[in-house]
Amino acid sequence: MSDRFTETTSTSWFSRITGAVGGIVTGFLLVIVACGALFWNEGRAVKTERALNEGAGAVVSVDPSRPDPANDGRLVHISGPVKVGAPPADPLFSGLALPDNTIRLVRHVEMYQWKEESQRETKNKIGGGTEKVTTYSYTREWSSGPIDSSNFKKPEGHANPDFAIAQNSATSESAAIGGFQFAGRTLAGLGTAEHLPPNDTVVAELKQFLGDSFNVQTSAGALYVGANPAAPAIGDLKTTLTASVAGEASVVGMQQGDRLKDYRASNGNTIFLTAAGEKTAADMFESAKSANTTMTWIIRAAGTLAILLGFRMMFSIIDVLGDVIPFIGDVFRFATGLASLALTFVLAPLVMSIAWIAYRPVLGLTILIAGLLIAALFLYIGKSWASAKRMEATV
């Protein structure tokens, strides 16, 4: 079920010019920040890779059953079954029957709520002004996070209540692999998730907590608070309980007695690796290197996109000036879009290559040359398009 609300607003050409002037400053700052992030990211990637290479060459695999004092201060790798200390507890459900070796207990709560979505259509008008038509639609859906209905464009009739039950996650205070001791949270994410069906005791505990005004029942393996699971109403709740059961695990860290801690490489980066199952040290370091590569490319892509957005904001005043005649504005937008792409593919590779040249000159120069070639291609496309338009105008 959904309903809609439409709002139409107009913006004068002068107001758009004022906003575009502010966009120049904002865009310039965005480009500066993005360049700084790209430069930092390249240094981070190289330092992380070098630390991992150093660690892979220094690590030794040891028998976890009895920590050897001779290995104190060394980077060691252990692997074996995890033994959990006292199991975690949910303060709301003391009657839960937990599987053996449960290391984490999660209470996940969803509420049926109103959600606002908006679609905007902007039209340019003669004289440079714009008309914006915004359509707000309201739908009902299950969400694990609170949706603040007070910020809705039309909050009347779309109010969301507060969560009567909070999310909760608890971990065992301690766990061990052989003779090595760990805080439970260190290994909690390596277990296998098991759904816990609610029993009569759990239902009774939730009824006692909520009071008589709430209807509590079970539905599809979850605790349901509401009248009818088949026809949910705003404010209805679903609560599921999940246990994470510890099995085999592998850890790489610096040995100190019966503990493993962060190992500091010669460049200052720290190494502490964990993995589910029995993994070799070589496999764990390869996984860490792969994760470092993935993170590096994510930051590269985000930084490059931010630079492009910054240039578009800086050139937006040209688009607004052209919008006095809508057709001219479209031409200007195409031209400034190509210019933004060209500048982005010059600046982003330039920043990355400068950072890389200090560490890997060949790769840094390759990135720089590739960026210049891409930028030249966009400039050539733009020049060809402009020439074609001039020829059309003279015909």
Score class of each variant (00 low, 15 high):
Lys261Asp: 13
Thr218Tyr: 08
Leu341Ile: 06
Leu372Arg: 02
Ser2Glu: 12
Ala375Glu: 10
Val62Met: 07
Thr139Glu: 10
Ile299Arg: 01
Gln181Glu: 14
Ala276Thr: 09
Ala265Thr: 04
Asn228Ala: 12
Asn41Cys: 08
Thr239Leu: 04
Leu368Pro: 00
Gly303Tyr: 04
Ala159Cys: 11
Asn267His: 10
Ser316Phe: 00
Glu7Cys: 06
Arg44Pro: 11
Thr171Gly: 07
Thr192Pro: 07
Phe315Thr: 13
Ser12Ile: 02
Gln113Ala: 13
Ala175Ser: 10
Gln181Leu: 04
Leu273Met: 07
Ser250Thr: 14
Ser61Gly: 09
Ser353Asp: 01
Val82Gly: 03
Thr130Arg: 15
Pro99Val: 06
Gly257Lys: 05
Ala97Phe: 14
Val25Tyr: 13
Ala164Gln: 15
Phe332Asn: 09
Phe285Thr: 01
Ser316His: 01
Glu248Pro: 08
Gly73Tyr: 07
Ile328Leu: 07
Leu305Glu: 09
Glu278Cys: 12
Ile369Cys: 10
Gly191Glu: 06
Phe182Arg: 01
Arg390Thr: 14
Gly36Ile: 04
Met284Cys: 03
Arg16Val: 01
Val216Cys: 12
Leu373His: 05
Gly129Glu: 04
Thr242Lys: 06
Phe332Leu: 02
Ile298Asn: 04
Thr239Asp: 11
Asp283Met: 13
Ser384Leu: 14
Gly253Val: 00
Phe209Cys: 15
Gln255Arg: 06
Val31Asn: 05
Asn168Pro: 09
Ser213Gly: 12
